[in-house]
């Protein structure tokens, strides 16, 4: 760390300290601060309930992923830093899929599914590791307040709808691949193994997969955001949120994105054996 970095960091810390000192007067009492916790902004269009905060943030995540894709579209023979990171990531994933999936015909498509899910979930989790625009709703779903830098972003992965969509996608894809690989009759017979009495157990076991798959990611990201909010309130937003965002956002977010895509690979390959 040279002298310029030290001066820069001291200025940032001074601004942070002054902002904290000013905001200390405006912090609401505990029951008022926590009364809107967990209430989302919901819009009803033709009988369907939409969550606009999730849609807006999903578009932001898509734009970031597309920007990453466009910036490495022309592969150079001598890679620069960004290209080598992307190459390393894709290579690691491809080797993992190759080791796990037994049928070589499905390696490439499984890799595409798992990698797409990983990119979306990881960028979304990273977005959830710093403060941003927060839409606060009330019980009837009406938008009451738009806050900027009051809480972490309401990222798409902190909403069960997104995670359940991806988990069901993996569930359907795994069974479609199984039908394609083994044929319809062998796939149907797989439900009645080892004997027909076990059919309900197999059914419940299969249906439990997407539920646990989606709830794990949702619980980690949404629970991390709520815990960060509560702990930050208890120290009046002074310094601790940075460590909480570092842990719940960067560390847990990366690990959960990895776990989500690895489980997707494992579920698909379990159907192919």
């Amino acid at each position: 760390m040279n002298k310029r970095d030290k001066i820069f960091l001291s200025i940032i810390f001074a601004v942070y300290f002054i902002a904290w000192f000013i905001s200390l007067k405006h912090i609401p009492p505990m029951d008022e601060a926590f009364s809107t916790l967990g209430h989302r902004w919901v819009v009803n269009i033709g009988g369907f309930a939409f969550n606009p905060a999730t849609l807006i943030n999903a578009v932001i995540v898509f734009l970031i992923v597309v920007w990453i894709a466009l910036s490495v579209r022309e592969m150079k023979l001598v890679p620069d830093r960004k290209q080598s990171i992307i190459e390393w990531l894709f290579d690691t994933f491809y080797e993992m899929v190759e080791d796990t999936v037994p049928d070589p015909r499905f390696v490439r498509s499984t890799f595409v599914v798992a990698m797409t899910i990983f990119m979306f979930v990881w960028v979304s989790n990273m977005l959830g590791s710093f403060p941003g625009i927060v839409f606060t709703g009330w019980e009837n779903g009406k938008l009451t307040e738009i806050g900027i830098f009051t809480d972490t972003w309401q990222v798409p992965t902190a909403d069960l709808n997104t995670n359940l969509t991806y988990a069901l996608l993996v569930f359907v894809i795994s069974h479609a691949f199984a039908i394609k690989a083994k044929g319809f009759k062998t796939w149907l017979k797989g439900w009645f193994e080892p004997n027909p009495i076990m059919m309900p157990m197999n059914l419940i076991g299969e249906l439990a997969k997407p539920i646990s798959h989606s709830l794990r990611l949702f619980g980690n990201i949404a629970g991390g955001a709520i815990l960060t909010y509560i702990f930050s309130y208890m120290v009046k937003y002074f310094l601790l949120p940075i460590f909480l965002w570092g842990f719940f956002g960067l560390f847990v977010g990366t690990i959960q994105a990895l776990v989500f895509s690895i489980l997707a690979i494992a579920y698909i390959s379990a159907q192919l054996t």
């Binding site: 709830l215 794990r216 619980g219 949404a222």
Partner: peptide, 8 residues
Amino acid sequence: STGIYSLL
């Protein structure tokens, strides 16, 4: 993950 479910 089971701990996370109970947190939820």
